[in-house]
């Protein structure tokens, strides 16, 4: 294209002008966002200069600003440390298992709860299912420890009733990961279901009525109406949880693990905690944090792009 079009007639410029006109008309909407944006800028963007620490040899006396650069040293070190690569592998395994099991569990619960006709039963069940979410892992871990105790725990009590040998679940490399996933389901299933229940509640009741007229069974309605209308929400939640793939559950693991299961349970966060926080290597910890964030963003962006290409869903 060698011909020169007058500026005002270039499509992009025309579009810009149109945009300005529309923006002025909708200025109330921008105003609405002003206060939240100021808050976010002050408390989130202003401290972001701290990310620099990942590329520095941090010295508290010099401060973040004046500490000397060491460029990518922290990042290079990561992949020469077999404990870090092991932690990376463990993180991915645990995360993927949780995505496969803990992620769909609340969807199933929401759909099943929706099928309960007795309001009282539904309410009570739902209330109970939230309960563990209100507690931190410090507390829950002590409960889990009691339930799974090889000597006092109810699980081993049952195992022994059936003539089995007690299992020390929390220090057994084969059982530790299933315990992690199951306790994660236990803690979050009810809470996770809330958002899907909210979505179900906004399904147009006409659709069910029309299906009734067609003589559809309960099960068919569930599969053909309820579940499909949850898809947009499922997609959003899935994309967002992809961004957390390198967070396999720090609090949970820190409170449940012990050196016996480091081999399968030591994740990036716990390893960095033992190295970075306990030993004051803030720069190292920041570098790992940045690494995790970049991977998370990359995953979210690509998942969103792929899903957008195939359907109209997506988080933006």
């Amino acid at each position: 294209m060698s011909t020169v079009t007058p500026l005002a007639e270039r499509p992009s410029v025309r579009k810009t002008n149109e945009n300005w006109v529309r923006a002025k008309r909708m200025k109330a909407l921008y105003l609405m966002m002003l206060v939240p944006m100021i808050l976010l800028f002050t408390f989130h963007y202003v401290p972001m200069y701290g990310i620099m620490v990942a590329f520095k040899k941090f010295s508290p006396g010099l401060g973040i600003w004046n500490s000397p650069w060491n460029h990518f040293e922290h990042f290079k070190g990561l992949f020469h440390d077999f404990l870090f690569t092991r932690a990376l592998r463990n993180t991915l395994i645990i995360s993927i298992l949780k995505l496969a099991i803990s992620f769909p569990a609340p969807i199933v619960l929401a759909v099943l709860l929706n099928e309960i006709k007795n309001g009282m039963f539904k309410r009570v069940t739902q209330s109970i299912s939230y309960l563990p979410h209100f507690m931190s892992w410090v507390i829950l871990a002590s409960m889990v420890g009691e339930v799974l105790s090889p000597q006092r725990g109810v699980v081993n009590y049952v195992i022994q009733l059936f003539g089995g040998q007690p299992i020390n679940f929390l220090s057994d490399t084969h059982f530790f990961i299933p315990v992690l996933v199951l306790t994660d389901v236990w803690k979050e299933i009810g809470w996770g279901a809330i958002i899907y229940l909210a979505a179900i509640s906004s399904i147009n009741t006409d659709m069910y009525e029309a299906a009734d007229v067609d003589g559809a069974t309960r099960f068919k309605k569930m599969i053909h109406i309820t579940v499909p209308s949850l898809v947009p929400m499922i997609v959003i939640m899935f994309i967002l949880s992809l961004g957390n793939i390198l967070n396999a559950g720090f609090d949970q693991i820190l409170n449940l693990y012990n050196p016996m299961v480091y081999g399968v349970a030591d994740i990036i966060d716990t390893y960095v905690y033992r190295r970075g926080i306990e030993q004051f290597q803030l720069d190292y910890a920041t570098a790992v944090g940045l690494f995790k964030n970049v991977v998370g963003v990359a995953l979210i962006l690509s998942a969103n792009a792929i899903i957008r290409r195939r359907s109209e869903h997506g988080i933006w």
């Binding site: 404990l83 030591d266 390893y271 033992r274």
Partner: peptide, 15 residues
Amino acid sequence: KYSGQLDTIVSEFRM
């Protein structure tokens, strides 16, 4: 610099 790694190796092996 190294105690985080060494502690991990030692305590895991010990248990």
